[in-house]
Every structure is written in C-alpha cells, then in structure tokens.
Write a protein that binds this DNA or RNA. Structure first.
Length: 194
DNA sequence: GAGAGGATCAACT
DNA sequence: GTTGATCCTCTCG
C-alpha cells in the first residue's frame, strides 16, 4: 500500500471533504496493518465558521497545525476520546476536515480487540470510535497524511454521496445548518443522524 | 495553579 | 432523554 500523492490535498476544502470518501486510512501498527475506508466526513471552514476551533483565525497551540500545509494530521482530545482531522486549504488558511466514520477493511482481529469485542457495526461508526479501533492517538498530531506509519491511500470508487448538516455542534449560530457533512449513501458504518 | 468546557460514547431510566 | 466518564487545552490570575 502506497501513500497518496500530496497534490490530492491541494483542492478546495468542500471538494476535498467529498473526495476523501472511499479513500483508505492505513496505520502500520506495531501489531499489524490496520486499514479503514472513509465513509463519512465533516468540513470545518476556519475563519468564517462559528463551529470551527479556528473561527476568527483563532491561533493557539492546539489549532496551530491548521495554519500549516494541507494534508497535515490534526488530532485533539474530546472527553475520553481522540478525534482526527485532515488539514485543508493553503498554508495560513485554517480549514480542517473531521473523519467521522470509516469501514473496516483490514486488520479486523486487531480492531475487534481494540473495540472490546463489540459488534462490528460499532467498531468505527463514529469519530471517537474509529480512532480507538485503529490505534490513533495524540502522538500523531502534526505529522503528514503521506508519511508512515499513519497515511492515506487510494481506495474505492464511491457511487453515491449524500450531504447534510453537521453533528454535535451547538451554539454556533447559522453554522449549525451549513451542509458540510458528507457520507457514502446507505453505508452501514456511518455515525448516527440527528 | 485552578477552573471550565468540549466537533463523544456508552450505559443507564 | 439523561448522565457520567475523566482528558487536553485555554483563560485568568
């Protein structure tokens, strides 16, 4: 499995969010290779998006990586979970795309173990779940999606894409209704709806 | 150095 | 529908 071309990340954020669907996330974990196909994403449009951490060009130690080049990995902690993003847009424009769900492709035994023997549909059907199933944590903050051991690879063609409002954001004014969520239509591994 | 809060999940009633 | 878990970062002093 080879990392994807770095030029893939050099497209407008909303297009990138849509084109991420079907790509593979590959993690060459010490205990085995883990692969998941991306089936759900959410775009966060930086300066103009009340729901984004980088709203109003807010620049802190946490959001710093979003001001870097597209294709960097932005991880952060949410309660007991780690969430993972793809940095988008040219340097100094802090956009990011949250990976909300993947479909298990390889390394199923290890994912099952990481997810405490839960039913397969619950392994990766949410942003906090998939990071646990694939062994992703804060140590991946700031590395690039084209670098091992955690990288993105060409995947499968996605026949049908659905669009809708994002999940889990509140008090974000109009931003709550923006149709910045993309998922593969009818895929069983997408996360919950509102 | 203390306190608050969040792009979540799972286990309740 | 509600709530506890319990982690990192940000803000204020």
């Amino acid at each position: 499995m080879k990392p994807i071309e770095v030029t893939f990340f050099q497209q407008p954020t909303l297009e990138l969010a849509r084109h991420l669907l079907g790509k593979y996330i590959v993690h060459e974990h010490p205990r085995g290779v883990l692969i998941g196909k991306i089936v759900e994403t959410e775009a966060y449009m930086g300066p103009d998006d009340r729901a984004a951490h980088s709203f109003g060009n807010r620049r802190t130690k946490r959001t710093e990586v979003m001001f870097g080049e597209p294709g960097l990995i932005y991880t952060y902690q949410m309660h007991t979970h780690t969430l993972i993003n793809v940095v988008s847009a040219p340097t100094d424009i802090p956009n990011a795309i949250l990976i909300r769900a993947v479909e298990p492709v390889e390394g199923l035994d290890l994912m099952k173990e990481f997810r405490n023997d839960l039913p397969m549909k619950q392994w990766t059907s949410g942003p906090g779940k998939l990071t646990k199933a694939m062994g992703i944590s804060m140590e991946h903050y700031g590395s690039h999606w084209t670098d091992k051991p955690l990288y993105m690879a060409e995947g499968e063609h996605v026949a049908s894409v659905s669009t809708g409002p994002r999940i889990g954001i509140q008090n974000s004014g109009e931003a709550v209704h923006y149709p910045y969520r993309f998922w593969e239509t009818d895929n069983p591994f997408i996360s919950k709806t509102r």
